[in-house]
Design a protein around this nucleic acid. Structure first.
Length: 421
RNA sequence: AGGAGCGUAGCUCAAAGGCAGAGCACUGGGUUGUGGUCCCAGUUGUUGCGGGUUCGAUUCCCGUCGCUCCUCCCA
């Protein structure tokens, strides 16, 4: 074969589509119950939207962006995530003046240039929600329950919630200072990446998987001990709301997340049933992002979930039903004369909503019945010289094998009634 | 970016230097106009690509492309 889809970009084939529809359907229905409205932003932005919004030193920006120059010489980037675009759109269309709290959701493709593996591809799909305009901890809890409700309504039960607070920028500054002064004397023991991170992004050392780094970090300062009173109260309130909502969680002090814009609450929902890439949903509060883009200081919180990973789980659980996709009626024909009548009959029945098919492969009657069987046809109409002679068709119930004659004068009503029973 | 594994029929996989096979699927027949089960027959190949070793390579070697999984990070 000469042509392949580019590495990391894959086709979603017809047989997988039921899973996608199941996920997208649950997402839309949950979002709408929670009163989030859909927004669709462009699939690409000027590179600086992500570079500034997500943060220059993050993995996403520093090594995973699909960036190219357009014909006007502008640097463009396929969106690696959608929060930066949503905030850009919020400001561009001046929603701060239109509504006090903007609750939006999105579903669509994202792009990150990485080596593909299970649960990770270069084009992948996320659903996500953003609530811009409130610092109420109850809103943090709402986003978390929204994320979890989508998963449980799809039938997933073995999901866990990791929760942490990384405080406000001032808290982080204090904490980073202390972390760095704790780590500097031990610098030699850190892995090469972490020695680099010590100057670029010390927080990321916390979730380095390297064992010796973990050993060193284990006895170091903990973020949640360095929250200012405001952030501490907020964190406590989030936990208290989650308690009220009976949501189980684990406090994960080392959860810092890969994007620079987060403040206060951060969380991750994961599954034990996935491979190495087990994060299903990630999110948190980003009180500084609107201001970073030039708006008034505006608190906000959101999350994003990966559809591919959900589909993987649903396929393993076989939770999605494939029934109801068969044909209502197959119209089998014997000769050219009957085929001409068959296409007219088929069109009339399709107009009333039946799923029908005729033979386009020149199959024998036997072959046509085999085809009807394979595609789970409820009924097969048989049309040949004998039927045309009497101005009727033979209607075969494919389950029982019973056959009756139906007049060509009122077949639409007659057949329609039998099939919808 | 690094590590490991795998590329043979439409699909799932055998053949381990000596005639490229099986199951499923597909087509026809048993049924001159009737599916599912059954029986019979038939079709299907640049063994990913290029080179090397050999009398002979799907098999061994080198290269290359592709896929998959893993490390890192994340959705």
């Amino acid at each position: 074969m000469k042509y392949y889809a580019p590495k990391g970009l894959s086709d979603i084939l017809p047989e997988e589509i039921p899973y996608w529809h199941a996920v997208e359907g649950e997402v839309r229905s949950a979002m709408s119950s929670y009163n989030y409205r859909e927004i669709r932003t462009p699939m690409m932005e000027k590179t600086e939207v992500f570079a500034r919004g997500v943060g220059e030193d993050t993995d996403v920006v520093s090594k995973e962006m699909y960036t190219f120059d357009d014909k006007g010489g502008r640097s463009m980037t396929l969106r690696p995530e959608n929060t930066a675009s949503v905030v850009r759109a919020y400001l561009e269309h001046k929603f701060f003046g239109k509504e006090e709290l903007s609750k939006w959701y999105y579903v669509g493709p994202m792009f990150r240039y990485e080596a593909p593996q299970k649960g990770r591809s270069r084009q992948f799909h996320q659903y996500g929600a953003e609530a811009i305009g409130s610092d109420d901890p109850a809103l943090d809890a709402e986003l978390i329950t929204l994320a979890i409700d989508i998963l449980t309504s799809l039938g997933l039960e073995d999901v866990g919630l990791k929760l942490n607070s990384i405080g406000c920028p001032a808290d982080r500054e204090d904490y980073i200072e202390e972390l760095v002064s704790y780590l500097e004397p031990k610098q030699e023991g850190l892995c090469a990446d972490c020695q680099e991170r010590l100057t670029t992004n010390p927080l990321r050392i916390l979730d380095c998987k390297n064992e010796t780094c973990q050993e060193i970090v284990k006895d170091g300062p903990v973020m949640t001990d360095h929250l200012c009173e405001d952030c501490q109260v907020h964190f406590d309130e989030v936990k208290s709301y989650l308690g009220e909502l009976e949501v189980d969680y684990v406090i994960e002090p080392k959860l810092v997340r890969g994007l620079d814009y987060y403040t206060k609450t951060v969380f991750e929902v994961f599954s034990e049933d996935l491979g190495a890439q087990d994060a299903l949903v990630g999110g948190g509060r980003y009180d500084g992002l609107v201001e970073l883009f030039g708006g008034e200081p505006t608190p906000a919180v959101g999350f994003a979930g990966g559809i591919e990973r959900l589909v993987l789980l649903l396929e393993e659980l076989e939770r999605v039903s494939h029934s109801g996709e068969g044909l209502d009626l197959y119209v089998a024909t014997i000769d050219e004369e009957s085929k001409k009548v068959a296409v007219k009959i088929q069109r009339e029945l399709r107009k009333v909503g039946l799923i029908t098919e005729v033979d386009y492969l020149g199959k024998s009657l036997q072959g046509q019945l085999g085809y009807a069987d394979r595609y789970d046809a409820k009924y097969t109409a048989i049309l040949g010289p004998r039927e045309l002679e009497d101005d009727e068709l033979t209607l075969r119930n494919m389950e029982s094998g019973d056959q009756i004659k139906v007049s060509l004068d009122n077949y639409v009503e007659d057949i329609g009634k039998r099939i919808t029973d």
